[in-house]
Amino acid sequence: MKSERRTQYEIYWEILVFCKTSRSFTSIIHRCNLNSKTGQDYIGFLLSRRYLSEADEEGTTVYRSTDNASEYLALFNQLYRALFDSVPGFSL
């Protein structure tokens, strides 16, 4: 998925879901299809809001979602699922 086709909120959501288990910077930018610069910006913001925590595991910096992120994740889930409730939907 190209990053320019996703909103910043969708990218935050992807990072937070992926980091439910500890992940390295490289694996995050690879999985979320970000370049190094934008990856740093997104992760930096989430760290500043304490939605991600940073730790050192065997010499590698890893990131993990915190409990603070749960409110955002729940709201995101609710809003995106509601898209299939509010719009009639397309079928043959």
Binding site: T7, Y9, Y12, R49, Y51, E71, Y72, L75, F76, L79, Y80, A82, L83, S86, V87, P88, G89, F90, L92
Partner: peptide, 29 residues
């Protein structure tokens, strides 16, 4: 006709996403 219908539904959803962005922004601070 089907592509028009599909496109119309997804444009509506895009509109809903734009409306919900403020709520997501607030949740993210």
């Amino acid at each position: 006709w089907y592509f028009s219908k599909f496109s119309k539904d997804w444009d509506l959803r895009q509109g809903e996403i734009s409306l919900s962005e403020q709520a997501l922004a607030n949740a993210l601070g």
